[in-house]
């Protein structure tokens, strides 16, 4: 099964009529989906932006450029910049191990990978307190060496890592599972090395899934509230991430400023999506029909080879 590495839009532009639903079904389905998304997503978002701009654009900008807000933004970006690449590394390697090989305990491994999703954020923070807090297992050791983990950046990074742990792996595993490993095996039997196989054969096929995984992981890393709140210590301008800053503002009855900071997180998420769309668009521009046909031909050759 060849993965046709075309952008999704290009793919369905070519959808022939007999592989499509009747027009009225399409309209109905689109309508249903839009209605659902409106009720669950759009209206709450609109509410956030409406609140954010309630007091005008000046207040909006002002609340985003205050000293504490800027410190919070910096911290949030730093945390995401450390946590996301690490989890991508894990996600890719776990997906490779799980989908390309059979081994005992695979199901156990997968379930353990999922587990951080099910852990209440409160507990996700608490575990690091139990480990690194001053009464924790490693507390005395850390105090002796004057190392700070909880209530400082490392603790915030750790809890963010924990919370966003499964995203990339979870995104890749079903996808790589669906694609099987025939192509990789073919490449290896043709003498390609492991890294080469991964970069040239596997990665092109999973890049959308990987990209989604990164986007999700990043969004969640920046938006995480509960777990970070437990280990942050809430020191203003120091250990407050953007979501914690939102809470502070909200608790000060500065609703407009609070929602302004929240809307910034929404915008950050939208920026990552814009990047994704850009990559998609560039990719499509290059991959013209000719290349597609060439690939098909090559694949047929490859099949013959085997």
């Amino acid at each position: 099964m060849a993965s046709i590495a075309l952008g999704p839009a290009a793919e369905s532009r070519e959808t022939p009529a007999h592989l499509n639903e009747p027009a009225w079904v399409r309209v109905l389905l689109i309508g249903l989906a839009v209605l659902f998304l409106t009720l669950i997503l759009l209206v709450p978002l609109a509410a956030v932006f409406a609140e954010a701009f309630k007091k005008g654009a000046a207040v909006y900008l002002q609340s985003l450029t205050s000293k504490d807000a800027l410190a919070a933004i910096r911290l949030t970006l730093a945390v995401a910049a450390i946590a996301v690449p690490l989890n991508v590394l894990f996600g890719v390697s776990a997906a490779w191990a799980v989908t390309k090989f059979r081994f005992r305990g695979k199901q156990l491994f997968l379930t353990l990978t999922d587990l951080p999703f099910a852990v209440s954020p409160v507990i996700a923070g608490l575990v690091f307190i139990l480990l690194f807090g001053s009464r924790g297992w490693l507390g005395p050791f850390l105090a002796e060496h004057d190392l700070k983990i909880v209530f400082a950046l490392p603790g915030i990074v750790l809890s963010t890592l924990f919370v966003t742990f499964p995203f990339v792996a979870r995104e890749l595993i079903p996808l790589m599972e669906a694609q099987g490993k025939d192509e990789e095996e073919a490449a290896v039997s043709l003498g390609a090395g492991g890294w080469r196989v991964f970069f040239r054969v596997t990665l092109p096929g999973i890049k959308w899934g990987l990209l989604y995984g990164i986007i999700l992981c990043n969004a969640r890393a920046m938006g995480e509230f509960g777990a970070v709140s437990v280990v942050s210590g809430h020191i203003r301008g120091r250990t407050n991430t953007l979501p914690l800053h939102v809470e502070i503002l909200y608790n000060e009855y500065q609703f407009a400023a609070a929602f302004a900071a929240a809307s910034l997180l929404v915008l950050l998420a939208l920026v990552t999506l814009a990047v994704k769309s850009f990559v998609e668009w560039r990719h499509r521009r290059h991959a013209d029909a000719l290349a597609a046909r060439e690939r098909q031909g090559a694949l047929r050759e490859e099949a013959a080879w085997r």
Partner: peptide, 23 residues
């Protein structure tokens, strides 16, 4: 063949990856 399959998109990816790495 495998090279050709991914090459076009992959180059862009690598460039992005390098930049992302720096960031």
């Amino acid at each position: 063949m495998a090279e050709r399959q991914g090459s076009i998109g992959w180059q862009a990816w690598r460039r992005i990856g390098r930049k992302a790495g720096v960031v």
